[in-house]
Design a protein around this nucleic acid. Structure first.
Lengths: 344, 344
DNA sequence: CTGAAAGCGCTAACAC
DNA sequence: GTGTTAGCGCTTTCAG
């Protein structure tokens, strides 16, 4: 028998009366309340949210889909979202996209679509989607059918109503100008895996007559979250092969730090022998030597804004489609210099 | 009306029959099944987990309390736990301990105790607690009253039954011997805030006649997750004041990397002028130059093991108290050298 | 193979 | 101020 029933019995009150007192509704006899509350404490009464949610139609929980937790960029936003949610009485279901992170047969792995479905079945009140790359079509299909409020950060499907965009055009343009000004004409992109991040970069560089390549031998194949060491090993190997591009742009600061180590080991001077650009504006970009020229992604504020928006949607305060933008910024430091034209 | 009812009406079957077919129970007429499933698809039927959980007594969700998300050590374990949970049909409620991370009046912040209570009210099936420092007594009181299975990683209250311990004694002893062998007699500990991590270290060092201090001026006061930059700034300031301890032990590799940068800026040679020890065995320890001597915390496997254990408890397969241990290991690299005895 | 009835713990609407 | 009744969507038990 449920605790409320027990209390109701002992106090000879009705179930509902007890329930309402417990829920904090005012207007009841003070003594009655005291008796009820005392008993509740003795029984260690814990209201059951499942029943509450079932009857009340709101689960007070949200889903947070986040593409990975491998860089502070993502983790920072997760933290903010979780904090805001918590402060507003919501709990977060975490959903990461690690389909490739662990070596397991692909068909044994639950897909993102399955997991999302699961969340919907749990009747989350809202969903936060923070991904850099487009979501698989099955996932989009689910999103379309579900009627819960969704706020996207960064990438969003065309039909999305609520989006927090990350504007990188200006930063990329600045970067291109900066590099062109140093005499660079050719750049190599070091990436984790072929991705879409490269296209806007390529476009921006082309406007300044800079040619960007992303040759497979500069692409990391593994899927470990250890960007630094992977990049270091890869770059060391490239350098050993005599492949020293005058300008290397890395997909993440952590990777650039790894390359920096490889340069050190190979006796290459940065930026005299090779120029290096990072991505993210992470702390490590400031504490490596030389300091990294990098594109700083927006940090503090994004997650908070995103949650506030979702909250509004969930309360149906407003239902307007909209789009807030946070901008990335170029940070010029010491890893970019005059093009070491002679080498290649 | 619920989707099941609709289907039951149209097919002229009973509610329960439809529900069971939908739940995948075998033994029904094949044609009946097909009709039901077809309708379900048309109606985009999504079983309601809240009802399921309420009736079934299991919510298929677990709570994950994790002290912070500021270092890859913690995030890595979270990822593993989330992955394992997901693969076993459980969803994770994330709970971080950011009471101090955001500048807000303390009383406006939901406490960890409140959040934990909330999770219990949501009837999580199990709880994972991964904290380095002791939990507040209110939280422990809640844990004691609740009857859900709990698995602790690292710190655990004395009464805890299931604990994954992280054994650091041996590594600390090795570290102490290594440092003593280099002629060191005095060390300064650089930390984020006064904590308990220092005591075992102090003890281990004392056995080798090494004296460890943790003076407040080497302690970071802020609470930003940006260890590298903070440590760099702090160390720079200390060096400027002429405070160059012959041996500095940092509470985290990231902080050590920051100090390394400060050394570089101050013209101090590592390890000739100052020896540096990190903590964690993070990727950045391998990609800074010189590479960090560090205490490598156990990484891959801990989260997985922890979840497997929790899973066993939740299924009540076994109920034995127990304790698995993962060990930390000393990694000797290039930031520790002969004591620069002359300076102080 | 199918169905009826009771109950999980809670809320909402309305009566007294 | 307090009680009654119905229902949220699902599972379980037992009867046919």
């Amino acid at each position: 028998m449920s605790a409320i029933n027990q209390i109701a019995e002992k106090t000879r009150l009705s179930y509902v009366t007890v329930a309402e007192i417990l829920r904090g509704r005012k207007g009841y006899n003070a003594k009655t309340c005291q008796r009820v509350l005392k008993l509740a404490r003795e029984l260690n009464y814990q209201p059951n949210y499942l029943g509450k949610a079932l009857a009340g139609g709101r689960s007070m929980s949200i889903g947070v889909i986040i593409s990975s937790l491998d860089s502070p960029i993502e983790v920072g936003k997760l933290k903010e979202i979780e904090f805001q949610a918590s402060a507003n009485g919501y709990r977060c279901y975490l959903l990461t996209h690690h389909s490739f992170l662990f070596a397991q047969p692909a068909d044994a792995q639950p897909t993102l679509a399955d997991s999302l479905n699961d969340l919907i079945q749990r009747r989350i009140d809202g969903l936060m989607v923070y991904v850099v790359h487009p979501l698989p079509r099955e996932v989009l299909a689910i999103l379309r059918k579900a009627t819960i409020p969704v706020v996207h950060i960064d990438w969003a499907p065309p039909e999305a109503q609520q989006v927090i965009r990350i504007e990188r055009q200006a930063a990329l343009r600045d970067l291109a100008k900066h590099l062109a000004g140093l005499g660079h004409r050719r750049a190599v992109f070091h990436q984790r895996a072929p991705g879409r991040m490269i296209q806007p970069l390529q476009k921006a560089l082309r406007k300044e007559n800079l040619h960007l390549e992303a040759p497979p031998e500069w692409s990391t194949t593994g899927h470990s979250p250890d960007f630094e060491t992977q990049a270091c090993a890869l770059a060391s190997e490239r350098f050993r092969q005599g492949d020293v591009p005058p300008l290397l742009i890395c997909h993440l600061d952590q990777a650039a730090v790894g390359v920096l180590a490889a340069c050190h080991d190979a006796g290459l001077k940065v930026p005299q022998d090779i120029s290096l650009v990072g991505w993210g504006g992470l702390p490590c970009a400031q504490t490596c030597r030389p300091q990294l020229t990098t594109v700083r992604e927006p940090g503090v504020g994004v997650g908070e804004q995103a949650f506030k928006w979702l909250d509004m949607l969930m309360r149906k305060t407003k239902d307007i489609a909209g789009c807030t933008t946070f901008a990335a910024h170029l940070t010029i430091a010491s890893t970019t210099g005059q093009c070491a034209g002679g080498i290649l």
